[in-house]
Design a binder for these strands. Structure first.
Lengths: 369, 369
DNA sequence: ATTTCTTTGGCAAACGTTTACTGGAAATTT
DNA sequence: AAATTTCCAGTAAACGTTTGCCAAAGAAAT
């Protein structure tokens, strides 16, 4: 009767701990173990206790692949971003990772570097891994690639730029509020000659920011000088070359608003090199409130858009789509102005000449040399 | 005989495309499809052709979970980093992602934020997902957590800091070369009073950088003034407060070397606020060659350590460990000095007074106001 | 004491692949 | 032409879970 269990001796190398091992150790069936782990309420308290003890004792943890294979749920979300080197994104990723992990999800990051081919690869990767949803924060041109996702019924949420006909949900960023605050802040200081350096205009979010700027200017009753409306690309370099172009002309605006912080920081750099004092001779406002912007010189006045909030809302949206695919109530992300020291009275203004510490009319300083 | 296949009609919602569907479409067995996909050489060319056609026609792609479950290979690597907001890391991540993806791997990012609890969670996540290896670039204290990985035989590679008794492979960074070049560059300009702002010293890599600095100083025959040896924390803020502390004293060094670029940029910021001209009155050198460092004012002289190279080597190491776990030949990452404009002759030196354009003895400028 | 209902745990069938084995046909040797 | 070998495709057994269904056991109702 014996001599039957020999063959399984030196089978494979090290076998990983099984749900069966736990079951045996706790003297229950594997079904009970599974149910215990998944918190199914029908298992007896005592048994559950025993199972947990065994799990701890053996230091067991379930195999995710097997789990998702059978349950059909990968517990994976994709995060599609355009460029990981823009400081805005790491902070976003961090936020997203945080919520995801604390909800038992894992994230797959795809950074497309503005390249359609890479984008395609990213989408493909995500499909293969069976993501349960994708959060998109890229520019607006890559629709065909995203359609692939839509056609496979992968829930999506656009974190920034709602496409013309949304294929998924969209977080609506209230660009207008923050930008208007910025414009009115400038107006209150006496500025009327304000320039704007946009992001790449094919990008929907850039377009929206610019529109918000124009509208806000309109509200204060001034039509911006066309030659002060430049297109950047949301990078440091872009901001730099835009301002370089601006400096070639004779007439300068007294303030520049930028579509994102990196652009503004680039602007600051060039202005400082050119010997143009900020904020004394020209004021600068950014957008995003990247961590770095507090540490440039002078600390950047900027419009804050919370990465944490975006990340959290995106996650929740994605989860909500899973449950009720039709529910498309957009969530709104608010923005608000953070006044630091890159803005002050326009050059030559009476106020500017009187006040000794121009630009310090709001406190929040760091150091004042 | 018929009337047997009715029940499978309205079973579940949408069934994803199967390997069986492909098999049926190509009129072969599923085994053949699998073999075709995996490039097993024994399948007939014609048949393979037919299979590929079907795959294309149906737009099929395999289910990764099922694949890894049976093959035991998750094709997942973990990447453990300390802080995603330090610009060094996104560039590293990008590099790692690139090699990984192009080799059919996916990466799981864990950013620990210097927190042991989070680290633990990260490790756990990676174990659950069955990673085939983990690349570690964090500081040196979290051994106990990493032991968990080691005890489960997960291959590891340390990308920066080799632990006392390596549990895996380690990339050896040749800190000495670049830092020596930096020190000698300063020495050649005439500096002897050089300060150093280190990273957090419990972090192995910080320690090594500092050691390299001290050794290099020794080589040029000067013993650094202890009061100019400060500890930072590899953040902008850390660099700032270190320099603030330095400025409180009367005697200043003529040059400061920093353990990383963010520290150096912080230093630059404080110096500029305090009205200390860089490089005229004090020279500054960073470490890492972060993208940003080219765009600060003045552009930062720094020691370059290639993220791409580290990422690639780490990936290759990880892969190599899989094949031959014993082979521990360390790979060496080189570093080299990049001279920009934050270094020049020491203040008050004869050379400095003569030369009109101090610091411009190497060309590579960007703009010169 | 019997019946009915409720709880609870086990059995076994999926999930979509890979891969060891197997057997039939084709190719080679005798 | 028979015997042997080689080649390749198909069959079926894993992989580690979840979960529908069912039966045993206890509780409640008759």
């Amino acid at each position: 009767m014996p001599a039957k269990k020999a063959p399984q001796s030196a089978k494979k190398r090290k076998r990983r701990l099984d749900i069966r091992d736990v079951a045996k150790h706790a003297r229950v069936s594997i079904a009970t173990v599974s149910r215990t782990i998944n918190g199914v309420p029908t298992v007896d308290k005592q048994l559950a206790e025993r199972v947990w003890k065994s799990i701890d004792a053996l230091n067991y943890f379930p195999n995710t692949q097997a789990r998702s294979l059978v349950s059909g749920r990968s517990r994976l979300f994709g995060l599609l971003i355009s460029e990981i080197t823009n400081p805005f994104f790491p902070e976003l990723i961090q936020g997203f990772e945080e919520v995801a992990v604390s909800n038992g999800y894992e994230i797959l990051i795809g950074s497309t570097s503005y390249d359609l081919g890479r984008m395609d690869v990213c989408v493909r990767r995500m499909l293969e891994r069976n993501v349960e949803g994708v959060a998109v924060m890229t520019f607006g041109i890559e629709q065909p690639v995203l359609d692939e996702l839509a056609s496979r019924d992968v829930p999506m949420v656009y974190m920034d730029t709602a496409p013309p006909q949304p294929l998924g949900r969209a977080l609506m960023v209230d660009y207008h509020k923050g930008i208007r605050e910025g414009v009115q802040h400038l107006a209150a200081l006496g500025h009327r000659d304000v320039g704007f350096i946009s992001g790449p205009l094919r990008q929907r979010s850039s377009e929206l920011r610019k529109a918000a700027f124009l509208k806000s200017m309109d509200e204060i009753g001034v039509t911006p000088n066309k030659t002060w409306l430049l297109e950047g690309d949301h990078t440091l370099e872009g901001g730099m070359s835009a301002v370089e172009k601006l400096l070639e002309r004779q007439d300068l605006p007294t303030a520049i608003m930028c579509s994102n912080d990196m652009t503004a920081i680039g602007a600051l750099r060039v202005l400082s090199r050119a010997g143009v004092k900020v904020p004394d001779e020209i004021s600068v406002i950014g957008f995003d409130d990247v961590h770095l912007s507090e540490f440039v010189y002078p600390p950047l006045t900027t419009v804050q858009m919370s990465r944490k909030e975006i990340a959290r809302e995106a996650f929740e949206s994605l989860r909500a789509v899973r449950e009720t695919p039709d529910n498309r109530v957009p969530r709104i992300i608010s923005t608000r102005l953070i006044v630091r020291q890159s803005t002050s009275y326009p050059r030559g203004s009476v106020l500017g000449k009187n006040g000794k510490a121009a630009g310090q009319h709001r406190v929040r300083d760091t150091v004042s040399v």
